[in-house]
Computed example of a mutant assay.
Amino acid sequence: MMTNLFSIFDPSINSFLSLNWLSSMLGLLFIPIYYWITPNRYMFIWNQINLKLHNEFKTLIQPNGKNGSTYIFITLFMFILFNNFLGLFPYIFTSTSHLTLTLSFSLPLWLSFMIYGWLNNSQHMFMHLIPQGTPNILMPFMVLIETISNIIRPGTLAVRLTANMIAGHLLLTLLSNNGTSMPNYLISILILLQILLLILESAVAVIQSYVIAILSTLYSSEVN
């Protein structure tokens, strides 16, 4: 039962050739065509979303941030959003439910922030280890706590996204597996619950993409 349940997250379920990871690139198929034709309503809405995110991320990065750095986090948001939504379609592999993918962008981001911060703003990075107003006797403990919390940041980013994607998909799978054994009068209730859960998962896909982008922006603002 458990093997069948978790097989939806198995990246090598195909016997001939595993193409599941290519689902991460399916989002690119929806983008290029809109850059070569006359702007339409879809493109207008997309540009408004990008502008809104740019203004919000620019506020978080603060005036001393590098110009154009907001587009890194906008791209990260769009990439995660596409993959989260594609995972809601039947027979499409959910790549964001694997730590292999989530760690592959959270760890390099965090590492680049740390290298840049310690090389260019060492004094500023040391100041973050001891919050203002900390008593002298508590300073060693605060340095230890802040260091540990800083080290586990890429792991928390990756696990947060993975756990949220797995939880919703597992719940949908559990309910659908029990549908064959339910009486006919409960099937309509099950379908309604599945629709509501799918709406919830769509909201989670957007929220988790936004949370990852916002947290990455906040982490980058600490090294400036």
Rank of each mutant, 00 (worst) to 15 (best):
P135F: 02
I166V: 14
F113A: 06
L53M: 14
P90I: 00
L22A: 11
V206S: 05
L26E: 12
N184E: 15
S15Q: 12
L51F: 11
L170D: 03
I31M: 08
N224R: 14
F30P: 00
F57C: 07
T75M: 12
L174D: 09
G168P: 04
S209N: 06
L174H: 07
F9T: 00
L197N: 04
S220C: 11
I61S: 08
A213E: 04
F93C: 02
T75H: 07
L171A: 09
T134C: 03
F85Y: 12
L129T: 00
I31L: 13
L60Y: 01
S106C: 06
S122R: 15
F44Q: 08
K58Q: 15
P108T: 00
L170F: 04
M127K: 11
P90G: 02
L101Q: 01
E146D: 03
S122P: 07
F30M: 08
F44K: 10
S181R: 10
Y210A: 15
E201A: 11
E56Y: 13
Q62I: 06
P63L: 05
I214K: 15
L88C: 02
G68R: 02
Y71T: 09
S220V: 02
P11Q: 01
F89W: 07
L86I: 12
T3L: 15
F57W: 02
T173C: 09
F126P: 01
M182D: 09
N136V: 08
P140C: 01
P154K: 02
T134A: 03
I8Q: 13
T162R: 10
G179H: 05
I72L: 13
R153T: 11
I148P: 00
S220D: 08
F79A: 10
S176M: 08
Y185T: 08
R153S: 10
T156P: 01
S209Q: 04
L175I: 14
K58N: 13
P63Q: 09
Y91S: 13
P108M: 01
F73I: 12
Y71V: 07
L144R: 04
I33Y: 09
Q123L: 12
P108W: 05
I187H: 14
F89G: 03
Q48S: 10
N50D: 09
H98G: 06
I152F: 12
N178K: 10
S24K: 05
F85L: 13
I80T: 03
L193M: 13
L171N: 09
S112R: 08
S69E: 13
